[in-house]
Amino acid sequence: MISRGHLSYPAYLQLATLKLAKGRTPEELGLRRWKITDHSAVLGHGEDVYRAAAERLHTWQVHAHAKVRARRRGNLVRLHFGPTTSSCLIIREEQTPTRTVMVYGTLPAHVESGEEAFIISLAPDGTVTGRVIAFSRHAWWLAKLLGPVARAMQRWANRRYVAGMRPGNFP
């Protein structure tokens, strides 16, 4: 069984993405040397939109929209993008009537080292917002070599993840 101790980043940073989402700064969290990506967008309005967006996240349609194939077994997820396969461990999942969250951390076989959080929220006025926030460092030699290209791909994927939360967007 894989545990949180197997993550490819320090234990003190676990769930730091959720703290960033609540307004803590990278400096406060010890993330000065990590790259932060944060993308959010309004997905629509109302409980039906919220439920549909949460369903898209739970069924990996969000990832499919970014051309990432996800295979889950328990809390272990293998992500396939192009020629790469990366492993993650889901370390937090929660769903309330107004918020859905999934956070996964990278395992040593991932092209990056870090954590990514997917957050869907329903505001009191009915606005539904999708957000992906991450901190990472390149772990794979090719990602390190092609740093700016790898970082641009990560930003592209995060925008696609959020767009994939929007009901009506299909892979």
Score class of each variant (00 low, 15 high):
114 G>P: 07
10 P>W: 12
92 R>Q: 14
151 R>I: 15
38 D>W: 04
143 A>V: 10
101 V>K: 00
24 R>K: 15
51 R>C: 08
81 F>Q: 11
57 L>M: 13
159 R>W: 01
167 P>W: 09
76 L>A: 04
143 A>K: 07
15 L>P: 01
98 T>D: 03
4 R>V: 15
88 C>N: 11
71 R>S: 08
48 D>M: 10
3 S>F: 11
121 S>K: 10
20 L>I: 06
33 R>V: 08
124 P>M: 09
12 Y>V: 14
148 P>G: 07
36 I>W: 04
39 H>N: 01
6 H>M: 13
106 T>D: 01
50 Y>E: 02
153 M>S: 12
100 T>F: 02
41 A>I: 00
98 T>M: 05
137 R>E: 06
82 G>H: 03
16 A>M: 07
157 A>Q: 05
81 F>M: 02
114 G>N: 06
45 H>C: 06
31 L>Q: 06
75 N>D: 15
152 A>Y: 08
64 A>F: 08
90 I>E: 12
161 Y>Q: 03
145 L>Q: 03
68 V>P: 06
101 V>Q: 01
100 T>A: 14
150 A>I: 05
133 I>F: 04
56 R>M: 02
117 A>M: 08
158 N>P: 00
14 Q>Y: 05
55 E>A: 14
144 K>H: 11
12 Y>E: 15
98 T>A: 08
70 A>W: 00
157 A>R: 01
104 Y>V: 00
89 L>H: 01
53 A>E: 02
78 R>S: 13
120 I>K: 09
15 L>N: 14
66 A>G: 11
163 A>E: 14
81 F>Y: 14
127 T>H: 08
169 N>G: 05
79 L>P: 00
50 Y>L: 03
119 I>M: 08
89 L>T: 06
75 N>S: 12
128 V>L: 05
82 G>V: 09
35 K>L: 11
80 H>N: 03
170 F>N: 10
125 D>F: 13
133 I>N: 00
26 P>S: 08
145 L>V: 14
61 Q>R: 15
60 W>Y: 13
98 T>W: 02
139 A>Q: 14
103 V>W: 01
97 P>M: 13
59 T>D: 12
92 R>T: 06
119 I>E: 05
14 Q>F: 06
17 T>N: 03
3 S>A: 12
146 L>W: 07
150 A>M: 12
136 S>K: 06
94 E>I: 00
80 H>T: 11
118 F>P: 02
101 V>S: 01
70 A>Q: 08
95 Q>F: 00
21 A>I: 07
109 A>D: 12
159 R>K: 14
69 R>V: 07
142 L>N: 02
68 V>F: 03
169 N>E: 13
164 G>W: 04
28 E>Q: 15
20 L>Q: 04
65 H>G: 06
147 G>Y: 12
139 A>F: 12
144 K>E: 04
69 R>G: 04
43 L>Q: 07
166 R>S: 11
80 H>R: 10
149 V>A: 04
95 Q>A: 12
40 S>G: 10
164 G>D: 09
129 T>R: 15
42 V>E: 15
170 F>M: 06
92 R>P: 00
107 L>Q: 04
44 G>C: 06
55 E>S: 09
13 L>E: 01
54 A>Y: 01
150 A>K: 10
130 G>R: 12
154 Q>K: 01
146 L>Y: 13
100 T>W: 04
